[in-house]
């Protein structure tokens, strides 16, 4: 599992990171998903949350969410796995031509920041508890289907 490229764009969250929010996200995620184990990045100098998944999507054997959440409720929810596949759901101001809101999605396989590929985020709920639950649901859906394609919930087979 490689370290994803931390571009400047992914660090454009407003405000300091919120340790309380990260702990809440962690608790909710672990409660709802038995395969998940969360740990703070820095117990005191807390700069993020890592959630390890015991199993991978499709051919992958494991996966991980790296979460950053600010006091302004901006966030990065970055998924990466041992096949070096990445995707990310973000909420923060950006200068992509689309979408118009702060919520956006960097699709797999490499969480591209190509303006032509960045999508609207399928996550419209905003409270930590609901965003964490939505993330679990989206992961579970991809896990059950064995594929990362369509994970952003916009491509829904009838």
């Amino acid at each position: 599992m490689g370290d994803h490229d931390s571009t400047e764009e992914s660090h454009a969250l407003r405000g300091p990171l919120d340790r309380t929010a990260l702990r809440e996200f962690c608790t909710v995620f672990e409660d709802v998903e038995p395969l998940a184990t969360g740990s703070l990045e820095g117990e005191i100098r807390t700069t993020g949350l890592r959630i390890a998944l015991d199993d991978g999507i499709g051919r992958a054997s494991s996966g991980r969410f790296d979460v950053r959440w600010s006091t302004a409720d901006d966030y990065n929810i970055h998924y990466t796995d041992d096949l070096d596949r990445d995707l990310r759901w973000d909420v923060h101001p950006h200068d992509f031509p689309a979408p118009t809101g702060d919520g956006h999605h960097h699709p797999p396989p490499d969480a591209t920041s190509d303006p032509d590929d960045v999508e609207d985020s399928c996550i419209t709920v905003t409270t930590i508890e609901l965003v964490a639950r939505a993330t679990v649901t989206l992961w579970r859906h991809a896990y059950d289907r064995g594929t990362l394609s369509g994970t952003n919930g916009l491509v829904d087979p009838p």
Binding site: C122, I123, T124, V125, L130, R133, A134, T137, L138, H141, G153, D156
Partner: peptide, 10 residues
Amino acid sequence: MTKDVNETVT
């Protein structure tokens, strides 16, 4: 997913 993820989790 037949139901929107946001509605489901809410």
